[in-house]
């Protein structure tokens, strides 16, 4: 009987890890403020993880001279980027080491610096890949001329982000729903 209890404990532990993975993302999707980000899709495939689009955002590569806030960063640092919700896309306003005060019509997104910055700073936000049904990758990688791919992102109060929808010319192509 003791072994059965231990087995149940093991199952509970493993399930807890998986539930935490689901719960943290659902929290961001359910409670996060939304902002549209401009993208440049690149490099589409991974043998291990099925079809996915790798997304590169305009806010992934920021010129340090043109952006307010802190400036002394190193590879691996956690950073917070304040974005103003523009008419079309979110615009980066300032870069911080700590979570900054949030102003009206602003959102703060958390990221991590991937290279030692010189004049520009390269940031990863954890929303750089989007899994899509197999065989549909090309439509997003190479949209027809004149089409624009953007991403609707939910950002929670801690700065964590999750993709809510992939938009083509402002229209949702893939949408994430709660469950």
């Amino acid at each position: 009987m003791m072994r059965l209890f231990r087995l149940l404990a093991a199952v509970a532990l493993l399930s807890l890890v998986l539930v935490a993975m689901v719960g943290l993302k659902q929290f961001t999707l359910a409670t996060g403020a939304t902002v549209v980000l401009e993208t440049v899709p690149i490099d589409p495939r991974s043998l291990f993880r099925g079809d996915f689009v790798r997304l590169n955002y305009t806010i992934s590569d920021l010129p340090l001279a043109d952006i307010a806030g802190d400036s002394d960063f190193a590879k691996g640092d956690t950073v917070f980027v304040r974005l103003r919700r523009g008419p079309l896309y979110g615009q980066p306003i300032s870069l911080h080491k700590e979570y900054p005060p949030v102003l009206e019509d602003h959102v703060v997104i958390k990221g991590r610096i991937t290279r030692n910055p010189r004049s520009r700073v390269r940031i990863r936000y954890g929303i750089e890949s989007f899994f899509i049904p197999e065989g549909e990758g090309l439509a997003l990688e190479r949209p027809p001329p004149g089409s624009k791919v953007t991403v609707l992102v939910a950002i929670d109060r801690y700065g964590k982000s999750a993709i809510k929808a992939v938009l083509v010319d402002g229209e949702p192509r893939y949408s994430e729903t709660l469950f």
Binding site: M21, V22, K25, R49, G50, R124, E128, F131, E176
Partner: peptide
């Protein structure tokens, strides 16, 4: 499940 949940929720 870890890999597939990461895929469902686009966890990067």
């Amino acid at each position: 499940n870890i890999m597939l949940i990461a895929q469902i929720y686009h966890i990067q």
